[in-house]
Design a protein around this nucleic acid. Structure first.
Lengths: 304, 304
DNA sequence: CTGTTAGCGCGTTCAA
DNA sequence: TTGAACGCGCTAACAG
C-alpha cells in the first residue's frame, strides 16, 4: 500500500542509502543517479515517513508549545510568532492549552516529551518544583516564555515589562503631565504586575515627580476593574490628569468610565497602556499603546 | 542514556512484550507481574517513546490543523475548541498557519502527511484541485472547516452562516425595524459573504419586507469598510433604521460612523452582526451579536 | 560516489 | 498468562 524508500530504491535501481541521500539533499550523489531517483520518486509518488525518520535520527523537527489559552489574543499573537519562526526552520509545533492549571501543565509536558519533541516552549504561570522535576526527566532544551523559575536556571524569553511601563509613563510625562495615576495588576505577578509598577515608579522618580499612594489602584486585568479604578481616581480631591494602565483591557474600562462621568479623553484625562491587542486599535478615543510586539517576543528563541 | 522498554523488561524480569502489554493496559497480564513492571518503570523513570510506538503501530495520536492565522481571534477560538476535543481523546494537534496562501497550504499539508498525522483538519479559503490532489495522496481522514470543496465530497464542518444571518436580521425585524440595510462581505466568499447575504434576503422575504439594492454595501471585513458603508447609508434620502453587518469588525466601524455623524446607537440606528469576537463585548454602545459559538464549531468533529 | 548492515524503540503475531 | 522473533521505514556508520 504505502510506498517506502525500499520501493524507490528498487525502482531506481540503486540502494536505500542512495535514496536516503537524495531525499536528504546529501551532496555525495552523482547528478545522474540523483535524477534517476527523483524520477522513481515521482513515478511512485513516494513520500518520506517522518516518524520512521524520527526514530532513526532521533530528531522530530517538532517543538512542543504549552500555552495557557490560545483563544487569548495575547497568547495567540505569541503563538503565531513562534510558529512563524519554527516554520522558517522547517519545524512544526504541537500546541497545547494548559489554562495555567498545574496538573494539566505537567500532563502535557510529559506527553510532549513522550512525542520526542526537539524542544519545549513553556508559557504559563508559576514554575513549581513539579515542573522542574518534569523538565529534568528529559534532555530536550526547555525555554520558558513570559514566566520564570525561581532560581532563573531555565532559559527564558519575555518582554521587558519594566522598560515598557517606563516608556509609557515617560511619554505621558513628556506631554507635560505631572499627576499620573496607575491601574496596576497584582504586584504578586512578577511580570505584568510588579515589573510594570516598578517601571511606573522609576519614570516618576527619573522625572522628579512625587509618588502618591492614592494614585495607584490594583486591578485584575479585566475591563470592569479598569472602570472601578478610574472611578476611584475621578473621585479623588485632586484627580490625575493622566492614567497609565498595565493592560489594554483595563485601559478601555478606564476610558469608558471617564466618558460615563461626562469627561473627555484625552482632554480631561489621558490614558495609556502597554499591551497591544487588536481591540485597542478599534476603540475610541484612540488608545495610545506602547507597542509591545508580542509576535516578536515569540520569535526571540524557541529552543530549536 | 535513555531507558527503553527493554531495560524495563530486564529490570522486572519479564519480556518486552509483557512490558508493552502493561504500558498499553492490555488486560492479559497477571496483576502480580503488572505490579512488578510498574515498579520497574517507576524505578527506572521509563517514558514510552511515542515515535517508536507510532512507527510500530502506524498511529501517532496526532492530528494536523492548518489554519489561516492563529492570531485572528475567530480562528483562535476554533483552534481552542479543536485542541480541547483532541485533548479529550488524548490526541495532540500540530498547528500550522497558512495565511490562506495556496502554496503554503499545499506545503504544510504535505508536511503534516509526512508526519503521519491520524487526521487532518483544513481551514482555509478555496479548495482547489491542487488541494484535492494533495489530500488524495494519503488515506488519512481529512475534514474541511469553514470551507468546502466544489463537489462537496470532502467531509466538512462549519457554522450555518445563512441561518446565523437570518436570525440576526429577524431579531431586528422583531424589534419593529422595517428598513434594514446590510454591510456584506464579498459575495464571492461562499460562507461569510454569500451565505450571510442570503440569510439577510430570506429574513426580509419571510417578513414581507422589500429588498432594496441601495441598502446593501459590500465591505472587505475591515473596520474602515464598515465606516464607509455606514456613511453611504446615512447619506441616503431615506436612511435605514437598522443595519446588519456580516462581521463584528465592520459593525464596530458602522457604530463609530454613526456616532461621528452626531447620531446615537441604537436610538437612531440599530446595529447587529454575527461574529462573536471578544472585542465586541468591549465596545460601546453594546453591540448585539448573534452568538456564533466558534469554539463549539471547532468541536463538532475533527477527523479523529 | 555507492551499497551493506545495523539498529532506532516498540507493537504484534505466533507458540508455548 | 507469557516470551521469542519479526518488522515498521528510515538513518548512519562503515566499507568499498
Amino acid at each position: 500500500m504505502t510506498v517506502t524508500i525500499y520501493d524507490v530504491a528498487r525502482e531506481a535501481g540503486v540502494s536505500m542509502a542512495t535514496v536516503s541521500r537524495v531525499v536528504n539533499n546529501n551532496p555525495n550523489v552523482k547528478p545522474q543517479t540523483r535524477k534517476k531517483v527523483y524520477e522513481a520518486i515521482e513515478r511512485l509518488g513516494y513520500r518520506p515517513n517522518a516518524v520512521a525518520r524520527g526514530l532513526a535520527s532521533k530528531k522530530t523537527t517538532t517543538v512542543g508549545v504549552v500555552i495557557p489559552d490560545i483563544a487569548n489574543a495575547l497568547y495567540a499573537e505569541v503563538a503565531r510568532g513562534i510558529e512563524d519562526i519554527a516554520n522558517m526552520y522547517h519545524y512544526n509545533i504541537i500546541l497545547t492549552n494548559s489554562d495555567k492549571r498545574q496538573e494539566k501543565e505537567i500532563r502535557v509536558i510529559n506527553t510532549l516529551l513522550e512525542k520526542q519533541v526537539d524542544g519545549l516552549l513553556f508559557m504559563g504561570g508559576a514554575v513549581t518544583d513539579e515542573h522542574i522535576q518534569a523538565f529534568k526527566t528529559s534532555n530536550v532544551p526547555i525555554v520558558l516564555c513570559a514566566t520564570k523559575d525561581e532560581n532563573g536556571n531555565i532559559p527564558s524569553v519575555d518582554i521587558d515589562h519594566e522598560a515598557a511601563a517606563f516608556d509609557a509613563v515617560n511619554q505621558l510625562i513628556s506631554e507635560g503631565h505631572e499627576s499620573i495615576a496607575m491601574i496596576s495588576g497584582t504586584l504578586e505577578d512578577p511580570a505584568n504586575g510588579y515589573a510594570r509598577f516598578q517601571g511606573y515608579k522609576r519614570a516618576l522618580e527619573t522625572a522628579g515627580l512625587p509618588y502618591r499612594e492614592e494614585y495607584v489602584r490594583i486591578g485584575n486585568y479585566k475591563y470592569e476593574s479598569g472602570i472601578e479604578a478610574m472611578q476611584y481616581f475621578l473621585e479623588l480631591p485632586t484627580r490625575p490628569t493622566a492614567v497609565f494602565s498595565a493592560t489594554d483591557e483595563m485601559a478601555i474600562g478606564a476610558i469608558h468610565c471617564i466618558q460615563d462621568n461626562g469627561l473627555n479623553v484625552p482632554e480631561d484625562v489621558s490614558v495609556i497602556s502597554v499591551d497591544n491587542s487588536r481591540a485597542s486599535s478599534m476603540v475610541r478615543p484612540t488608545l495610545t499603546t506602547v507597542a509591545q510586539r508580542c509576535t516578536t517576543s515569540g520569535r526571540s528563541r524557541c529552543g530549536c
